[in-house]
Amino acid sequence: MNTLYVFGQYAWLSMRAQLQYRSAFLVAAIGQFLSSGVEFFGMWALFDRFGDLQGWRFAQVAFFYAVINCIFAVADAVSSGFDQFGNVYVKTGEFDRILLRPRSPILQLAGHELALRRIGRLAQGLIVFIWASVSLQIDWTYTRAALLLWTCIGGVCFFVALFILRATLSFWSTETLELMNILSYGGLDAAQYPMSIYGAAFRKFFTFVVPLACISYFPLVRVLGVEDPLGSSPGFQVLAPGFGVLFLFVVVRVWQVGILHYTSTGS
């Protein structure tokens, strides 16, 4: 509880600082809203031209798009410190100061900046989510709503883990790691569509190595109430988001190993 209180204080101070420049905040948030809106317009254009995507209707794919964008917006908002870790903390030696404080480095980096501008992507995702839910006439029972919440928790843990993993690799390579951008931002783009449309090798990688499908495709198939073309069982679909939480625990252990290899700047 004390850790949550400290993080809450970090977040409150970050929000106050950003809201001192409200015009800049509004412009950034609107920019996020419009940029994600362009992505959705591209998706609409695809379905307007071809009608469906291997049997998936536009409203169903829009549901995937909306949920994964809301998940990513939350994860990205609390991971700003990890996203900038290599250039801001390792190269300058600022990470030394974090290590001297009697608090977890992960807590301090998570509280580095609560990126309020991500509310633009979140708002756009929520609008699409409401539209898709109404179009699909989803019956929101307590069970279905609980599964969606469980999916969001697993998804946020998964994307936060990717940002932490990128920061961890900075202990060995302080330059920008485009490979991790492929997994984080590229994973966001891939998860906006049903995993069944991709090739077998791609699906296996994003299920058994990097569990992207477990926090997006499998549980959302269950929420939509459609039969999975890949043949997954209902039980697995319900349990799948747990792999996102497990992935975070594994990455935190890797992070702790990375700290042992941190040698500072020598300045």
Rank of each mutant, 00 (worst) to 15 (best):
L246T: 14
Q137I: 13
I153L: 12
A62L: 01
F41C: 12
F205V: 15
L126G: 07
R203N: 14
A240Y: 01
F129Q: 12
V223T: 02
I130W: 12
L109D: 05
A132T: 11
T92C: 01
M1S: 11
V27H: 00
D189W: 03
V74R: 00
G235A: 08
V223D: 09
G242W: 05
R103E: 14
V254D: 04
E39T: 14
I182T: 09
D83R: 14
Y5L: 09
A191L: 10
W12F: 05
A132C: 06
L239N: 02
F64G: 01
I197M: 06
Y65R: 00
L4E: 11
C157K: 03
A200Y: 07
W172K: 12
D96L: 06
C214G: 05
I215Y: 02
A29Q: 06
G258V: 09
A167P: 04
R57Q: 15
I138H: 01
V78W: 05
W131R: 03
F243V: 14
G120W: 05
A17N: 13
F208Q: 13
A73F: 06
W150S: 07
S133G: 08
L100R: 14
R121N: 11
S233D: 08
L114D: 08
V134K: 07
N181Y: 06
V156D: 04
T263V: 15
W12T: 02
R121K: 12
V209G: 05
R103G: 00
F236D: 09
A45D: 13
Y10M: 07
F40P: 01
F206A: 06
G42P: 15
G235L: 14
L19Y: 07
D228G: 06
F158R: 06
V74K: 00
L26P: 02
A123G: 10
A191Q: 06
I127Q: 09
T263M: 09
Y198P: 03
T176N: 07
G86C: 01
V156R: 02
P229S: 02
F25I: 04
E113L: 05
G37V: 12
S267T: 15
A29F: 01
D83Q: 15
F249N: 08
S135K: 14
F247C: 07
Q124D: 05
L230T: 11
R118H: 14
G258I: 13
F129N: 09
V88R: 13
A167C: 07
Q9Y: 00
T92N: 01
R49N: 10
G125P: 11
F58D: 08
L149F: 13
I98T: 15
P241C: 06
Q256W: 00
G111F: 02
A240D: 10
E227M: 09
E94I: 01
A45W: 10
S233Y: 07
F249P: 12
L148H: 10
W140C: 09
A167H: 02
Y198Q: 08
P102T: 02
G231T: 11
W172P: 04
A146W: 06
A59Y: 07
